[in-house]
Design a protein around this nucleic acid. Structure first.
Lengths: 147, 147
DNA sequence: TTAAACTGTAACCATACTAGTTGCAGTAAC
DNA sequence: GTTACTGCAACTAGTATGGTTACAGTTTAA
């Protein structure tokens, strides 16, 4: 199974904010690109603001901007801002302490799962929003050449 | 958010089967250790059998045994057998092709997410069921010494 | 000074997945 | 033929999800 797609939305929004950093974007503009809903976008941008990645201004002409340079925001920053708790989880409830395996496995699993997850997060931390913007521009240039 | 705890159940069951490999274990015995339900256990062991990790025998005196040596079964084997599809997922539906970011981000996200997930799976692949059994025994010995 | 264009937030909905459970058919041993 | 298993379908309650409506608050501009 999959976790939520909130990380994808967050990274999408951050990439847009970096691509058009000379102006503010509204939640409606970002929702248009996502073919989704402005409220959903504001919810996720709200988490990103709590994490210090973006800033918002209210009222007419308001909207969203990055709070840091695109190359100082990694995919892991986005992921950590919107995803709650660990991905790999242990048992739904503690196993039996009567069983030799049951009373020891939880601690072992926690260690293994934590390390596996750290490996994933470490990889996410190696790509920045600036990288994504650059690749978007590259891909656009390739598409232009094909025409 | 977290994915299912099926991997934890699968690893728990495999560790029990390795720990008591001289005999077959029933789904009821494993469910006892999990403080859960035999049907739930059979469902997960069924996936492990489909993946060639365990074998089952029906009828009275039947039960479950490992199909491979414990050191030839990694946590990733268990994870892959019971977990369906990728953990990190892209957008719920494709973004707008009208938008420069929208029409490019999906492919970029897929690559990034796939690589991040591979890092996690690679880490899971480094620990075997034999490792876990050894650590369970080690922890038990420590507990004995404290008494 | 009022209308327009934003954010912020609560409430709600349908859907889907989860762990857990019941019930029962099939199979093998005693 | 009874007992002890697996196998499987069907169901439940709980929870998270993406999406939506409604509306209060804020700022700008006509």
């Amino acid at each position: 199974m999959a976790i939520s797609s909130r990380s994808a939305v967050a990274i999408h929004a951050l990439t847009m904010l970096a691509r058009w950093s000379e102006r503010t974007l509204t939640s409606a503009e970002i929702a248009d690109s996502l073919e989704s809903n402005p409220v959903l976008v504001r919810r996720i941008l709200g988490s990103l603001r709590d994490a210090g990645l973006v800033e918002s201004t209210e009222g007419r002409g308001g909207g969203w901007t990055l709070a840091r340079a695109p190359r100082a925001i990694t995919l892991h920053d986005a992921y950590a801002a919107v995803e709650t708790g660990p991905v790999l989880t242990g048992h739904a409830h503690p196993p039996s302490r009567e069983c030799e395996v049951g009373r020891n496995i939880q601690a072992l699993l926690e260690t293994e799962f934590r390390e596996a997850e750290q490996a994933m997060e470490e990889r996410l931390g190696r790509t920045t929003i600036a990288h994504l913007v650059q690749r978007v521009l590259d891909r656009e240039r390739e598409l232009d050449l094909q025409r």
